[in-house]
Amino acid sequence: MTVTYQGALSQGEATETVAMTFTAPATKQFTILSATGAQIIRDSVFQRALTAEQTAAGAAAQKASALTLENYTMVLVGREQLPAGTCLVLDVTPKVASEFTYAGRVWVNMTDYAVVRIQGKPAVNPSPWITEGEFTTDFQKVGDFYFPLKTVSSSNLPLGLRAQLTIQYGSYHILGATPLRK
Rank of each mutant, 00 (worst) to 15 (best):
G7I: 01
G12S: 11
E16D: 10
E16W: 10
T17Q: 09
A26Y: 14
A26P: 00
T27G: 15
Q29N: 10
A35E: 01
A35G: 09
T36M: 07
T36W: 06
Q39K: 12
S44E: 12
V45G: 04
F46A: 03
R48P: 13
A49P: 02
L50K: 09
L50I: 00
L50H: 00
A57Y: 00
A57L: 06
Q62F: 11
K63T: 15
S65F: 12
S65Q: 15
A66R: 05
L67I: 14
L67W: 08
T73K: 01
L76F: 15
L82H: 02
A84L: 13
G85V: 02
T86H: 12
T86I: 15
C87W: 01
A103P: 03
G104H: 04
G104D: 06
W107N: 08
M110A: 15
Y113Q: 07
V115T: 08
P122A: 03
V124A: 03
V124Q: 06
P126F: 00
P128T: 01
W129I: 15
E132P: 03
G133Q: 08
E134Y: 12
E134P: 09
T137H: 05
F139Q: 11
K141L: 01
F145H: 08
P148D: 08
P148H: 04
S154Y: 08
S154P: 08
L157E: 04
A163Y: 05
G170P: 04
S171W: 05
H173I: 04
H173Y: 11
L175A: 08
L175S: 13
G176A: 06
G176K: 05
